[in-house]
Design a protein around this nucleic acid. Structure first.
Lengths: 177, 177
DNA sequence: TATTCAAATGCAACTTGTTGCATAAGACTA
DNA sequence: TAGTCTTATGCAACAAGTTGCATTTGAATA
């Protein structure tokens, strides 16, 4: 399960709480992984149970306790073996493509709305990429290899999104004729 | 659940058995949806239970029965409302990107093997696209809108895959320096 | 002739992810 | 002052997807 590995990665340098990890998912890792808080809290507890993480409870005056998780040696080892193992190919699932295969039954209005909304989402995603790039990778030439690698993932995300948008525009234009 | 909708789409023109649908997933729909046979058989039975499909058992001499499924009116209606409903955005999950965020701990050999294997997979995918295009969309200009729409999905699949390959080549080249 | 492969179907157990609900305190806002 | 937002945590039920196993027949192979 990759969620586990992603958690290990987010915690390898700085320990943190479930909520901290959620915030990292929402900002600098939003093009890499997304998970709900329920998933995260459950998984953190299981990882602690499996000995991959330790949990230090920080009591806060008149507030719920903060539970700070940090990697154990077993956790570091689990991360290493995950890195060494090549990933399985993920199955293709493109529900939008499926709609294109039911073109005759897809009402024109619903179709246009859906494609327009998607285009907006993709543009927002580009804006998010730009934010991340600005905040974390403002000077690509000065990056160490370890910093440069994550930057590459951002670039691919950008290019893929651009490819999608171009395609959408072509398809939508063809519809207007 | 989109699997249900994809099944409805594959059955809307020609009825078929679970195995038939599997074959369609493996050939002309491989860039749209993939599912295991267990998933399919289970889902078909549930859809019959929900009244979306009828099942006609065709006894075959000295062979297991063929169960031919076909859409009911309720099935057609379910497909229509799925088409009218805009799709929810799917959560981002890029385990490969995560590995880039653990660059220092990702052994050079494992990294190279993984990226090279991925490049091969992507090139095979391009070959599959070319096969599908050749078989189903050999003359794009002669296509009706209903045939042209699925062709667009193929084109996007191709472009996205090409974008991935270009990026991989750049990243791998940078590693060799 | 014995073995293996492909066609065709399915059950059961398990893992992963989603949805709905719940708590509790401080800070903001109408 | 009452309501909502953010911080911070979690349980329980459910839906979706995976893994492992099992069956029957014909056709191909050794």
């Amino acid at each position: 399960m990759s969620l586990r590995a992603v958690i290990l990665i987010t915690l390898q340098h700085e320990p943190g709480t479930g909520y901290d990890i959620l915030q990292r998912f929402k900002t600098g890792l939003s093009h890499v992984w997304q998970a709900s808080h329920q998933q995260l809290y459950r998984e953190l507890d299981r990882m602690r149970g499996a000995g991959l993480l330790t949990c230090e409870t920080m009591p806060q005056a008149e507030r719920p306790d903060r539970k700070v998780y940090r990697l154990t040696d077993a956790g570091r080892q689990a991360l290493d073996s995950w890195l060494a193992d090549p990933l399985a190919a993920s199955p293709v699932r493109q529900p939008l493509f499926a709609k294109f295969f039911a073109w005759e039954h897809w009402p024109e209005q619903a179709r246009h709305q859906e494609l327009a909304a998607l285009k907006e989402q993709l543009k927002e995603r580009l804006a998010t990429y730009a934010d991340i790039e600005h905040e974390w990778f403002s000077d690509p030439k000065a990056l160490t290899p370890g910093q440069r690698a994550p930057w590459h993932t951002l670039r691919l995300g950008q290019r893929l999104t651009e490819t999608w948008i171009e395609w959408l525009e072509e398809v939508m234009e063809e519809q207007q004729e």
